[in-house]
Computed example of a mutant assay.
Amino acid sequence: MKSGTRHPTGYWAEEFMRPHQAFLAEGYQVDIATPQGRQPVVDELSLSLGYNDNDQKSVDDQRAYIAGVAALKAPLVLGKVNAADYDAVFVVGGHGPMQDLAVDPDIGNLANAILSNPKKVFSAVCHGPASLLSIFDKDGNWLFKGRKLTGFSNAEETQATFAGERVAEPDATGVPDRI
Rank of each mutant, 00 (worst) to 15 (best):
S48V: 03
K2S: 13
P129C: 05
K80N: 13
V69H: 04
T34F: 10
V125R: 06
I114K: 00
L115G: 02
V59I: 11
N82A: 15
F23D: 09
P40C: 02
Q62S: 12
G108W: 01
L47N: 13
N82E: 11
K148V: 07
Y28F: 15
D61S: 10
Q56Y: 05
L76K: 15
W142C: 04
V167I: 14
L149D: 02
K57W: 00
H127G: 04
F162H: 05
L72P: 12
G10S: 06
Q62V: 00
Y86C: 08
I32D: 03
C126P: 04
G96H: 12
S116F: 02
A33T: 10
L132F: 12
D104F: 04
G94H: 14
D104I: 03
G164L: 02
P75K: 08
V91E: 09
L101I: 03
M98E: 07
K138L: 06
P118N: 14
D139R: 08
A124K: 02
A25T: 14
P129T: 07
L110P: 12
L76W: 04
I32S: 01
D31V: 05
E14W: 11
L47M: 02
R147S: 02
F23K: 12
S131N: 04
A64T: 15
Y28S: 11
Q39G: 00
I179S: 07
D53A: 08
A71P: 01
A84H: 11
E157I: 10
G108H: 04
V92A: 14
T34Y: 06
E26C: 13
F23S: 08
F152E: 01
A67G: 14
S48Y: 05
S46N: 06
S48R: 12
G27A: 12
T5Q: 15
D87R: 15
T173E: 09
N109P: 00
D104G: 03
N82K: 15
I66T: 13
P105E: 08
A71L: 10
I135K: 04
M17V: 15
Y11N: 08
A124D: 02
T173Y: 01
V125D: 01
G174N: 00
G164P: 12
Q99N: 11
D104P: 10
I32H: 07
D106R: 05
K120G: 05
L49Q: 07
G128D: 09
V42L: 06
R6L: 03
A160S: 08
I32W: 06
Y86H: 13
V125S: 07
P97W: 10
N52H: 09
L24C: 14
M17K: 15
W12V: 11
V77C: 00
G94M: 09
Q21V: 15
G68Y: 07
T161I: 01
D85M: 01
E14Y: 13
E26G: 14
V69G: 04
V125Y: 07
K80R: 11
E157L: 08
G10P: 13
A160Q: 09
W12K: 06
G174V: 00
Q99S: 11
Q39A: 14
A67T: 06
P118C: 07
V125Q: 12
G96Y: 05
P97N: 03
V69A: 07
D61E: 14
V30G: 11
V92L: 05
